[in-house]
Amino acid sequence: MSFRFNFSVLCFTSEELEPTENESTVQNPVDKYDSLNSLFQSDKQPFIPPSELVLNNLIDILPSTLIAERIFFSTCEQSVLYKRHLSDVKFQLAQEDNLLETNYNEGTRILELTADSDIVQGVYEGGLKTWECSHDLVEFLSKNIINLDFEGKKILELGCGSSLPGIYILTTKNPFRVDFQDYNKQVLKLVTIPNILLNTLLCPKTKDFFNGTTEIDVPEYSNLLDQVKKSRFFMGDWSGLTDIINLNSEQEKYDLILSSETIYNTDSLPKLYNVIKYSLKRPSGVAYPFFFIMHSYFT
């Protein structure tokens, strides 16, 4: 289904993801797009293995204040969402590096990468940046919110980054749980989790709270951690992710899976496909992966 001029959304139902006799063909449904790989060549690095980020406190995650900005959506003005400003994230990364005895660590590496490139495969997957497709997915959800039943449902956002689509559902339709996955641990700690708290406990859901950028005090309340513990957080590569999530039954699987702007190399498409395939509840589960399409290369 075409959503905008240069963005597309796929809707996978769990019935369409049933195993077939020729599994190898199913696992790579985009072979015809292999020529796109040449546009994104980079030095390949070993992928970070998947794991779960378990939080027992927020001391090492949240500073005393957060710089928040209001997100505006062109087609759903009634939606009120906030996110942490990128400059505030980078400031915390740099500040944490200065407090460490080592001269070179993950925070320093990510800061260098964001200065030179949006993405370096296997090292940094672009989660600090809020990509345009996440706005598109929020707008898609808001347009179809009447027809989408999220009440009491389990939802997973893959490659969440700023996590705007997952947070939109979390704050709009009272789901049972929304879980989040991103490649980099630092993205979950410094972007995803602060954004969840900004939209659930720290910023009131009123249009007139602020319209630009403002500084938000972070109180030392236990309910902040309680809010975060309502979700699970996963990091690392998609390969083996379903083993970490540990979905032993259909009931434990997800009713809805979201993903926006997570594919820039077709090598990753089989991984994304398989996570969706083995994590989606049957027969009612639905997945909405949004991604950028370079039309001139898909003819």
Rank of each mutant, 00 (worst) to 15 (best):
R4I: 08
S8G: 13
L17H: 03
P19V: 10
V26G: 06
Q27G: 05
Y33P: 03
D34P: 01
L36I: 09
L39E: 09
L39G: 00
L39M: 07
S42M: 08
P46F: 05
S51Y: 13
V54F: 13
L58N: 04
I59A: 12
P63E: 15
T65P: 02
I67R: 14
A68S: 14
T75N: 13
Q78M: 05
Y82K: 07
L86F: 02
V89S: 00
Q95L: 15
L100W: 04
N103K: 13
Y104N: 13
Y104C: 10
N105E: 08
I110E: 06
E112W: 03
A115W: 07
I119C: 01
E125A: 11
G127Q: 07
L128C: 11
C133T: 12
C133I: 09
L137G: 00
I145W: 06
L148S: 09
E151V: 09
L156G: 04
S163K: 03
L164C: 06
I169Q: 02
I169C: 01
T171G: 06
T172K: 15
F176R: 14
D179Y: 04
D179S: 05
F180N: 00
D182Q: 05
Y183N: 01
Y183Q: 04
K185P: 01
Q186D: 13
K189G: 01
L190M: 09
T200D: 09
K207E: 15
D208W: 11
N211M: 14
N211W: 11
T214Y: 07
E215K: 10
I216S: 05
V218N: 02
Y221I: 09
S222P: 08
Q227T: 15
S231V: 03
R232Y: 02
M235Y: 10
G240V: 08
D243V: 09
I245V: 15
I245L: 12
L247V: 10
N248Y: 10
E250P: 00
D255S: 06
S260Q: 12
S260G: 14
T262Y: 07
T262M: 11
T266D: 11
D267T: 15
D267N: 14
Y273K: 03
V275N: 03
I276E: 00
I276N: 01
I276C: 02
S279V: 06
F291C: 08
M294W: 08
M294S: 09
F298H: 11
